[in-house]
Amino acid sequence: MERIVLGDVEITRIVEWQGPFGPARAIVPGAGPEVWRDHEKWLAPEHWEPGTDSFVAALQTWVLRSDGMTVLVDTGVGNGRERPHTPQFAHRQTDFLGQLATAGVRPEDVDIVVNTHVHADHVGWNTVEREGEWVPAFPNARYLIAAADHASVDPQSDHSLGRPDDHLVFADSIAPVRHAGQAVLWEDTHRIDAHLTLEPAPGHTPGSSVLRLESGTDRAVFVGDVLHSPVQILDPSCNSCFCEDERAAAATRRRLLERAADERELVIPAHFAGSGTAEVRRAGSGFAITGWA
C-alpha cells in the first residue's frame, strides 16, 4: 500500500485490480506502434506489455486525508455488477473494503466520495448490495457527482446519452446514493476544503472533472480519465477510445498538461499502473515525463 504526503494532505493508493486490459492501439488509437516501441524502456512493463502489445491499466482509488476529512477519489468497478457490454467489469469479486480497512478507513469514516466522471469503473464501490438492494457503501459520505454526467446517465433526463450499460450503472451505483439524500450534483467548480477543489474537464464525458490539490508549496491534479496512458502525455492530441467528445477531450488534456508543467503539479491519472503519479514538463509541441512519484 503506497502513501505520499503533499503539504498537509496524505494520499494512499488502493488498487482494486491491475494488469493487461486490451490492445494498446485499440485503447489509444492515435498512438502508432513507433510511439510505443520508441519509448519501450519506460513504458514496459508497467504501462505496456510488448510481447502481447497490451495496454496495462490499474483500477484504483485514492484516499486523501485532508483538513480532518477522509476523501475517496473514484470508487472502481465494485462487486457483483451486471455489465453485459463491458464483461471485464461484470460479476467481479474483490476485497476492496478490506483494503480500505487495512489503510485504516472504515466505511463510516468516509466524509466525501469524488466521482471524477460517471463511467462504470469509477463509481462501482459507491454502493454495496444488502438483502438484494443496492445501498450507499459509505453511510456518512457526501458523493460529489458532476451534474452534466448525472444527466448523461439518468434514463429520465432529457440529456441522457443512452450509452450501453448506462442504465445499469445509474440503477446500481448512482440512483441509490440519490435516494439516500447523499448525492451532491455540482456545476462550475466545487471547493471541498482549503486544499481540494473540483473543476470541470469536459471531453471524456460531458461532466468529466479533475480534483486539484494545493497545500503549502505542493501541487497535484487528479485527472481521472483525461489520461489513460503515458503516451498521451507525449502527444496530448491522442484520445482514448472511450473519449466521447474527442475535440474537447484533446483540448482539455493539453490545457491540463500545460498548467501541470508550468505550475509543477503532480499529475495523477485514474488508470496508470506501476508508478501512478507523473512529473511533466514541456517538450516541443508535447510534453515529457521527468519523474514518477
Score class of each variant (00 low, 15 high):
residue 106 R to P: 09
residue 250 A to L: 04
residue 184 V to Q: 12
residue 179 H to R: 15
residue 234 L to D: 01
residue 32 G to E: 02
residue 126 N to C: 10
residue 65 R to V: 02
residue 58 A to N: 05
residue 162 G to L: 06
residue 138 F to L: 06
residue 250 A to V: 09
residue 109 D to Q: 14
residue 261 A to I: 01
residue 159 H to E: 12
residue 174 I to W: 13
residue 165 D to Q: 04
residue 127 T to H: 05
residue 11 I to T: 12
residue 189 T to V: 03
residue 271 H to D: 12
residue 142 R to P: 01
residue 213 L to A: 08
residue 21 F to W: 14
residue 207 G to S: 07
residue 247 R to C: 09
residue 102 T to G: 14
residue 85 H to A: 10
residue 292 W to N: 11
residue 169 V to Q: 02
residue 32 G to L: 04
residue 41 K to G: 08
residue 26 A to P: 04
residue 18 Q to T: 11
residue 231 V to H: 00
residue 18 Q to L: 06
residue 24 A to L: 05
residue 153 V to E: 00
residue 125 W to Y: 04
residue 33 P to C: 04
residue 75 T to R: 13
residue 168 L to P: 02
residue 293 A to T: 14
residue 2 E to V: 05
residue 76 G to L: 14
residue 237 S to W: 04
residue 193 D to A: 09
residue 277 T to D: 08
residue 274 G to C: 09
residue 83 R to M: 15
residue 58 A to Y: 04
residue 208 S to Y: 00
residue 8 D to G: 12
residue 60 Q to K: 10
residue 86 T to V: 14
residue 102 T to I: 13
residue 4 I to N: 02
residue 91 H to T: 15
residue 67 D to W: 03
residue 27 I to F: 10
residue 101 A to R: 15
residue 204 H to G: 05
residue 255 R to V: 01
residue 230 P to A: 01
residue 145 I to T: 04
residue 77 V to S: 14
residue 243 C to Q: 05
residue 195 H to R: 07
residue 271 H to A: 11
residue 70 T to Y: 15
residue 174 I to A: 11
residue 4 I to H: 03
residue 28 V to L: 11
residue 3 R to K: 09
residue 92 R to Y: 05
residue 72 L to M: 10
residue 10 E to W: 12
residue 264 R to G: 01
residue 154 D to V: 06
residue 190 H to T: 00
residue 10 E to M: 06
residue 228 H to G: 02
residue 100 L to R: 01
residue 170 F to K: 11
residue 112 I to Y: 14
residue 163 R to Q: 10
residue 58 A to Q: 08
residue 263 E to C: 05
residue 293 A to C: 10
residue 15 V to Y: 08
residue 217 T to Y: 15
residue 244 E to M: 12
residue 231 V to S: 00
residue 287 F to A: 13
residue 261 A to R: 05
residue 27 I to A: 07
residue 198 L to T: 02
residue 210 V to S: 10
residue 114 V to R: 02
residue 2 E to L: 06
residue 110 V to F: 14
residue 235 D to K: 03
residue 145 I to G: 00
residue 198 L to S: 03
residue 226 V to D: 00
residue 195 H to C: 08
residue 175 A to G: 07
residue 7 G to R: 13
residue 127 T to Y: 03
residue 54 S to Y: 03
residue 63 V to Q: 09
residue 216 G to R: 11
residue 63 V to E: 08
residue 259 R to C: 02
residue 230 P to V: 01
residue 242 F to L: 04
residue 273 A to E: 08
residue 146 A to I: 00
residue 8 D to I: 03
residue 109 D to G: 13
residue 220 A to K: 01
residue 21 F to K: 08
residue 291 G to K: 13
residue 121 D to A: 03
residue 26 A to Q: 07
residue 128 V to W: 03
residue 279 E to P: 04
residue 27 I to D: 08
residue 19 G to T: 04
residue 247 R to Y: 14
residue 138 F to Q: 05
residue 123 V to D: 01
residue 88 Q to W: 15
residue 144 L to C: 02
residue 193 D to C: 09
residue 249 A to Y: 02
residue 228 H to A: 07
residue 211 L to G: 11
residue 20 P to W: 13
residue 79 N to F: 10
residue 27 I to G: 03
residue 239 N to M: 00
residue 44 A to F: 06
residue 26 A to M: 06
residue 63 V to H: 06
residue 269 P to T: 09
residue 39 H to R: 11
residue 115 N to S: 13
residue 70 T to D: 06
